[in-house]
Design a protein around this nucleic acid. Sequence first.
DNA 1: AGGTGACTGTGAAATTATTTTCATAATTTA
DNA 2: TAAATTATGAAAATAATTTCACAGTCACCT
Lengths: 290, 290
Amino acid sequence: MTEASQTISDQIQKKLDDFTRAERQLALSILENYPASGLGPLTALANDANVSVPTVARMVQKLGFKSYPDFQSELREELRAKVKNPIAKHDMWAETAPSEHLLNRFTDAVIDNIRLTLTQINPAEFDAACGLVADQSRHLFIVGGRITHTLAEYFYLHMQVIRPNLTHVQSTSSTWPHYLLNAKKGDIVVIFDVRRYENNILKLAEIARSRGAKLILFTDQWRSPVHHFADISLSCRIMVPSAWDSAATTMLLIETMISSVQNLNWDDTKDRIETLEVMFDQTRLFRKFT
Amino acid sequence: MTEASQTISDQIQKKLDDFTRAERQLALSILENYPASGLGPLTALANDANVSVPTVARMVQKLGFKSYPDFQSELREELRAKVKNPIAKHDMWAETAPSEHLLNRFTDAVIDNIRLTLTQINPAEFDAACGLVADQSRHLFIVGGRITHTLAEYFYLHMQVIRPNLTHVQSTSSTWPHYLLNAKKGDIVVIFDVRRYENNILKLAEIARSRGAKLILFTDQWRSPVHHFADISLSCRIMVPSAWDSAATTMLLIETMISSVQNLNWDDTKDRIETLEVMFDQTRLFRKFT
DNA sequence: AGGTGACTGTGAAATTATTTTCATAATTTA
DNA sequence: TAAATTATGAAAATAATTTCACAGTCACCT
């Protein structure tokens, strides 16, 4: 084997820059179900990747194979070798790094957090929270702490597109009580508070509650004291091999909620998004392609 | 699926007694390099097993497949499922919700994103990026786009504690060119740019590069055009069942990098954190417990 | 704005490979 | 020895691959 020491997967990644748009699309599709998708018929692969048959043929040649069957036969050889090799144990995420590598340890921890968080979550409560957030007749307040205000803003930026009638409370400023002056019965306050829990957030929650608002809380497994006032609490596991906590699981829940709320409001949202697209096009803020 | 829960390998072993001599010989040969040998052409398999072509055809039919290609396609399907980590094919994450519940579908997608991202990442490059970010003699610029600036800020907030000499570039403002006035050779620019890619970020990257800064890019699987200027690109899978993209995997990488950089700088960081703790205590911003 | 060139998809034809199915002879097994 | 199983070789049928020409699209450049 002259250069067979690197897998076809590696070769594809290395050549990613030399590929054209359609070829890259194909390449990513191959890597998505590697190596299974490359072992089927060429036509099936082309369909999977949403590219044309000639594109597949062209790319295979660019990779240096005489023909598609040639490419497949190397793939099979690779699979043979991998299955044979006992080192190919699959409990690693970044396979080219040792299992003690931080990438693997950290990912292990995050997956574990996700698993634990999801088994402990109450789907009915989650759905209820989504329902409340989707209700456009209620004003939506979003607030976070020193670190979590970034999550709050992430949530806010999406909600802003999906629905009107919302406010991002800048809790770091001393002006947050002013926001609450407008809060009325039935309004929704989404609060992010993980350790270390912040006093002003607690105060805010208390006041909001006393004004009759519904509170939805994103917190950690030990639960912020805010949860005493919250109508719905969603606790996420946050422990990782780091001096810091992980927001990855919280992010997952936030994004799921965004998607859910979007679905609930789809009819209204559609128009808002289209309008937004037009505006973005006009401002030429975004690139069209490549 | 009625009996698809058992693998083809299982089915073959179970029927081993019903097979004739030549068929058994073939069966064992298939199991020898399972599943690679079954994915090649029928003729090759017959040769490998030293049986005739019709024998292969007969056995495949005995196993209950309509044709040899049918058999292969099931083998591929099996391989697909197997490649996903055992943990990734977890049936349900939120066990009290049906598997079609968004919580389960979304989590599935995110786990898959993590798996794919990690297998395609280059640990050496990642480590190199961490090394650069940890180097306190280089000024660290952090910049994100319309949505991703929240990730940028999350990264910034942690880096702020870990090391001095850094700037969060507010790319939304029109003042970002001013930040770059201070950029000099050897400085680090960490850029977040996922679709839709933003023109001003690209411009910024180009200028930063021309001033001799090192660029580290967090992007998606399709890669922002910034990657042409970047010294190190980290691409994350971001597809989820939503109208929006997922930043959960990106978050995972960011946090891993934070942890890694913190480890590299531990001696210096320790003091900074302690100082910070004292300051927080004094401002009574955080609650001590509960 | 308009032209240029690279890239892609389409459809189809030619080619090649693969599978299926026979009949028959050889071999094994009971 | 008879019956069942196999291999052989080959033909027919099917499927897959390769290769075109051409037209449409998109990015890029002037």
